[in-house]
Design a protein around this nucleic acid. Sequence first.
DNA 1: AACATCTACAACCGCTATAAC
DNA 2: TGTTATAGCGGTTGTAGATGT
Length: 248
Amino acid sequence: MVRNLLRPNKRNNTTVKKGTWSGEEDQKLIAYIRRYGIWNWTHMPKPAGLARTGKSCRLRWMNYLRPNIRHGNITKEEEDMIIESHRLLGNKWAAIAARLPGRTDNEIKNYWNTHLKKRVGNGNKLPNSFASDIKAKPSLPTIDTPKSEPDSGSQNVIPTMPANSFCTSYGVHGDDKTSENSCYSPCSVIEEEESLWEQFLALRDLEIAENFGGTYMHSGATDPALVCMEKEFLHHSGSCEEFIMDLW
DNA sequence: AACATCTACAACCGCTATAAC
DNA sequence: TGTTATAGCGGTTGTAGATGT
């Protein structure tokens, strides 16, 4: 029994898939973000070839697919940090996650509810007023995380940008395969070679380029792939053929 | 072997905050 | 200033796999 439902979306008359993400869906999302970056979660699923809501895509990316996510057992040190942070902050999972590099709020929340809640209980929680005081003070010392501060110098920086300012071929994943993080990560598996879906996206770029001057040029396209290609082509001095070659 | 129960965690839902218009 | 769209957060649910009977 897999949570794998299809629900019609009344708003745009499409069918939205729910439930567990398949490997193919992961691959599509990673390939799309790898190529185009994160520009708008709501409008991303369609051009990415996903029958998911933007919200679902965001959650999947943030909690599972994003680079530098640590999967696997929580260490003793991390557990201590969770307990201590929870004592200070209460159920502020995002704030707690910010103190634990590579861990997501969802993971910490699950870990707390399944492993620590009974053991630690709520007895050590400080009053809410204290927790909100801490929240209001961004100077609270925290451990750097990819979420709050993308690691500089690395290519594992996900571009986030408004839809109208985006550009193609942003590097989402680094080439560093010597990472000490040996935990399973769908990202690292797919990183090994260009995915089929990524190749498809590249072919689509080519198709778009071939149609410049015609259909796409004045289509008012909103798909960033088209918008950006359009901009790039307009600024390209060479022929269409040269433009295509430059893309590779 | 078959079924029931438990555990861990991925994913969904509803709400709030923020930004843009 | 009000409205709408989007992102993010925390609570909760549902499922897969493990374990017990």
